[in-house]
Amino acid sequence: MRKLFPVLLMSGLLFSLSSFAPVRSGAPVIMKHARVYTFPITGTTDGTPGAGQPAGTIAYTVNGSGTTPTSITFSTLSGTSLGTYGFTQSSPNNYLATGMKTQTSISGTYFHISGACGSAGYCMEFIGAL
């Protein structure tokens, strides 16, 4: 009886493990790829196109190279330039442009590089926009 228990235990383990199949060699592998944005990036946001002007929609264009933004240009929807402002890296994957408040009512613009921003991989944040 003492020898029967280990034999039954081993045969039970062998039977239960025999149903597992090895991983196929062609199993899909998740590959990480560097994100590359196509500059220029364009869009619109709320702002004031110059001192004494009514609030409204203004256009922006972000220029850069690879995944690094270099500058942002604001303009009215009719095409009048409101200035170009350079980005500086404020922390890893975060870039800040400032100095546009007089022309746009925007104190600063953050360009965030993050997978949490959706499929584009970047987010734009306008600080102090109307």
Rank of each mutant, 00 (worst) to 15 (best):
R2V: 12
R2T: 11
K3T: 09
P6G: 08
V7Q: 09
V7W: 05
L8W: 03
L8G: 07
L9Y: 02
L9C: 12
L9P: 00
L13K: 04
S16W: 09
S16E: 07
L17C: 13
L17R: 02
S18W: 06
S18E: 02
S19P: 00
S19R: 11
A21K: 11
V23M: 14
R24D: 13
A27V: 12
V29S: 10
V29Q: 12
I30W: 06
I30E: 11
M31T: 09
K32D: 08
K32Y: 05
K32R: 08
K32C: 05
A34N: 08
R35D: 10
V36G: 05
T38S: 15
T38M: 13
T42V: 15
T44P: 00
T45W: 02
D46H: 01
G47N: 01
P49D: 04
G50A: 07
G50S: 05
G52T: 06
Q53S: 12
P54E: 02
A55W: 00
A55F: 02
A55G: 04
G56L: 03
I58K: 01
A59G: 05
Y60T: 01
Y60R: 00
N63P: 01
N63K: 07
G64H: 06
G64Q: 07
S65C: 03
G66Q: 04
G66L: 10
G66C: 07
G66F: 04
G66A: 10
T67W: 02
T67P: 03
T67I: 13
P69F: 06
T70Y: 02
S71D: 12
F74P: 02
S75G: 06
S75W: 00
G79C: 12
G79M: 12
G79P: 06
T80Y: 05
S81G: 11
G83C: 10
G83N: 08
G83Y: 04
G83F: 08
G83Q: 09
T84H: 09
G86D: 13
G86P: 05
G86C: 03
F87L: 12
T88A: 15
P92I: 11
N93C: 04
N94I: 13
N94M: 13
N94D: 10
N94P: 00
N94R: 14
Y95E: 09
T98S: 14
T98G: 08
G99N: 13
M100W: 02
M100A: 11
K101Y: 09
K101E: 13
S105E: 02
S105P: 00
I106D: 04
I106G: 06
G108F: 03
T109G: 01
T109S: 05
Y110G: 01
H112D: 08
I113C: 15
S114N: 06
S114G: 06
G115M: 05
A116K: 08
C117A: 15
S119V: 12
A120T: 10
Y122D: 10
Y122G: 12
C123M: 07
C123S: 10
M124A: 04
M124I: 14
F126C: 08
I127N: 04
I127M: 11
G128D: 06
G128S: 07
G128T: 05
L130F: 01
